[in-house]
């Protein structure tokens, strides 16, 4: 009798496994490390990703239904806010920083320019609650979603439950953002021997490895650390960067080292968007370094890049553009 009962139970569990198999697996690009994000705690599924995508592009997340995540993280600009040094949010209010580009987030251990956020799942809480960004609260977002028949249906498809919670909302947003993997630029194709650099790009790559790679380490083009890269502090913004979170003077003026992937599309540059072009950025590393006690040791000597060398480095940086990523219809505004 017990054996019969055991086999019945086992059989039913196997059937359940088949019914539930709508999982989605992220492809890890060759030569990349394993993702930091723990997918076991938020297993990807097509329905959850689709829900997250709907939420990402929906201004319902803001107080007056005007600002969505996509407002400041546009897919065609490497998921950042092009043309604005400081991103603007609800009621045309201007924030204090340039919105970061979103990609390869499963490999990112810490978020925001100052590392204020420790997990992708809770990242969205910051812009939702920021009075200059979305000016809303997660409590109110969940209530609005619960009054939307469309979302009740999308959440049910994703979680098999009629209730909408903050946890589900945030995890669904994570699901969509986790799929934003950019790993098919010309640089990547060269690594896979599917393409070749031009002579200029190759020169630029060598110079890049010599001058830039200690912070912008391949293949993610960031060490994921924080650094003071010698920007003269803005007297109005008075942004101390990482120290604002840790209160440690050693972290004064340190900001997260951003990835350089899709850099061609993610202008303007730096945490306050002070540089509009890559040429200005290289000029900064050549001549503009502001010396302060926490300056990165890699910048203690000014780079003495010639005009030709700067052009070569930029030619290389343009090989980091991944058009398949930028124009992937799966990542763009969902058509209902």
């Amino acid at each position: 009798m017990n054996i019969v009962r055991f086999f019945c139970g086992f059989f039913l569990i196997v059937i359940c496994g088949f019914i539930q198999d709508k999982s989605f697996h992220l492809t890890i690009p060759p030569n990349w490390s394993l993702p930091i994000y723990d997918f076991n705690k938020n297993p990807l599924s097509k329905e959850k990703i689709e829900l997250g995508r709907n939420l990402f592009y929906d201004p319902i997340l803001s107080r007056n239904n005007t600002i969505s995540c996509g407002s400041c993280h546009s897919p065609y600009n490497a998921f950042t806010h092009v043309d604005h040094a400081l991103s603007h949010g609800i009621d045309d209010k201007i924030g204090t920083r340039n919105s970061p580009a979103l990609m390869n987030l499963a490999w990112q251990p810490i978020f925001m320019w100052d590392g204020a956020v420790n997990h992708l799942d809770v990242q969205a809480l910051a812009p939702i609650h920021n009075p200059d960004e979305m000016g809303e609260s997660i409590e109110s977002v969940v209530k609005k979603l619960q009054n939307s028949p469309r979302y009740i249906s999308l959440f049910y498809k994703a979680y098999g439950d009629s209730i909408i919670t903050g946890e589900y909302t945030l995890k669904a947003l994570s699901q969509f953002m986790l799929t934003l993997v950019s790993a098919n630029s010309k640089y990547d194709k060269v690594q896979k021997h599917q393409a070749e650099f031009t002579i200029q790009e190759q020169k630029g790559y060598s110079l890049f490895k010599q001058h830039c790679a200690s912070c912008h380490q391949e293949p993610l083009f960031t060490t994921q650390q924080f650094a003071n890269n010698g920007l003269l502090p803005d007297p109005e913004l008075r942004d101390v960067g990482r120290m604002g979170i840790t209160h440690n003077p050693k972290d004064s003026l340190l900001f997260k080292i951003p990835t350089l992937r899709n850099i061609e599309f993610s202008y303007p540059y730096m945490h306050d968007g002070r540089f509009k072009t890559l040429s200005q950025v290289l000029q900064h590393y050549n001549q503009g370094i502001h010396r302060s006690p926490t300056l990165s040791q890699h910048l203690s000597q000014p780079k003495q890049l010639s005009s030709d060398e700067k052009v070569d480095i930029i030619a290389f940086l343009l090989t980091l553009s991944d058009r398949e990523f930028l124009f992937n219809p799966e990542f763009s505004f969902p058509r209902k």
């Binding site: 938020n42 956020v117 420790n118 997990h119 809770v122 903050g166 995890k171």
Partner: peptide, 24 residues
Amino acid sequence: VNVSGALGGDLDPTKGMYWTWQSG
């Protein structure tokens, strides 16, 4: 618990006990 991302039940961020400008 503080580094475990979005959690549910009593730990759901809708309970008003989660900081939003920094994690925790």
